[in-house]
């Protein structure tokens, strides 16, 4: 088939765009798509000599290995529980913050408070974890200083297995709530003023305005954030769990991501660790689609 002349001419006009596009395209191809090829490793025996794809096919051997390790139920449960608890406890705070900021009439005060709650977002995970450990340290921590000053006896918090989850979850709230509230603040600032006026005419109290105007107006934002959170339920961050992990809290702090790191990077069981990672991604994808479908049915707000 002959290509019409004007099409060729048009394509020629775009050569600079193609050239420009080639730069990010190459980056994404090399560093996002090429590694995907390595997923095949989960179904093959890795051989140092023959590289990623040279090994023998292993079928589902590494997945069977994963499901048969005694710790697997524990690791899976830790990942899910930590994630769900983080979500349930962390989710309402940004919304409450945004609704509260909305009640402050003085713009300057509001700005100062918002700026303060934003601060922890700029602190690294390493520093957040070390602040927790410093403040709760048995010998020198301020929490134990207070307990001692009040006449109690000091508690070695980092040495208690049950300390891990609350510390993990609430430091997450501490770090992220101010930042996450931005979305809701933006949604609230877009609320139609006539709705408030109508509510005032109906004699609504402040609380009623919040319940019947503010919350319904930010509901779509809430639902989308919720979908995204649930979709990421198994991809809970490696960094903080790994940094907070010690032999005592292992039974709560070992999650899929830390397990992949240990088996893959530390013990070089490449095929097995790839299989674990792949299992994680697949479950995530399923969750995202599932939650999105449910949310779409219930509220007509969905991601795609």
């Amino acid at each position: 088939m002959k290509v019409p002349g004007h099409v060729i001419k048009k394509q020629k006009r775009y050569w600079q765009l193609y050239l420009l596009a080639l730069i990010p395209f190459t980056f994404v191809l090399l560093f996002n798509y090429m590694p995907m090829y390595g997923i095949l490793l989960a179904f093959k025996d890795y051989s140092i000599k023959k590289g990623i794809l040279g090994g023998r096919w292993a079928g589902l051997k590494y997945f069977r290995q994963l499901f048969s390790i005694p710790n697997f139920p524990l690791i899976l449960r830790n990942t899910i529980v930590l994630s769900i608890e983080s979500m349930i406890i962390g989710f309402p705070f940004p919304i409450l913050l945004a609704l509260s900021f909305n009640e402050i009439a003085n713009k300057n005060i509001r700005k100062v408070l918002q700026t303060i709650t934003f601060a922890p977002f700029f602190i690294s995970t390493v520093v957040v974890v070390s602040i927790i450990f410093q403040m709760f340290s048995y010998r020198y921590g301020v929490v134990n200083s207070i307990i001692r000053a009040l006449g109690g006896s000091a508690v070695n918090f980092p040495g208690i297995a049950g300390f891990f989850r609350p510390a993990y979850i609430f430091s997450g709230v501490w770090q992220g709530a101010g930042y996450s509230s931005i979305l809701y603040i933006a949604a609230l600032s877009a609320v139609d003023v006539s709705l408030y006026e109508a509510a005032a005419i109906d004699g609504a109290s402040r609380l009623q305005k919040v319940l019947h105007v503010d919350i319904p107006c930010i509901a779509p934002t809430i639902i989308i954030t919720l979908i995204l959170n649930v979709g990421n339920i198994l991809s809970i961050g490696f960094e903080k769990a790994y940094l907070m992990q010690n032999p005592v809290n292992y039974k709560y702090s070992e999650i899929i991501a830390t397990y992949v790191y240990k088996t893959g990077i530390e013990q070089a069981q490449f095929s097995f660790a790839t299989a674990v990672g792949l299992f994680n991604s697949v479950v995530n994808c399923i969750m995202l689609v599932l939650v999105n479908t449910i949310a779409g049915k219930i509220s007509e707000t969905s991601l795609f």
Binding site: P35, M36, Y37, V260, S281
Partner: peptide, 18 residues
């Protein structure tokens, strides 16, 4: 082409080996 990478990635080990 770009958006797909938000949802699918090779994972830690394939990236490391690559």
């Amino acid at each position: 082409f770009f958006m797909v990478t938000m949802f699918i990635s090779g994972g830690t080990i394939p990236m490391y080996l690559w």
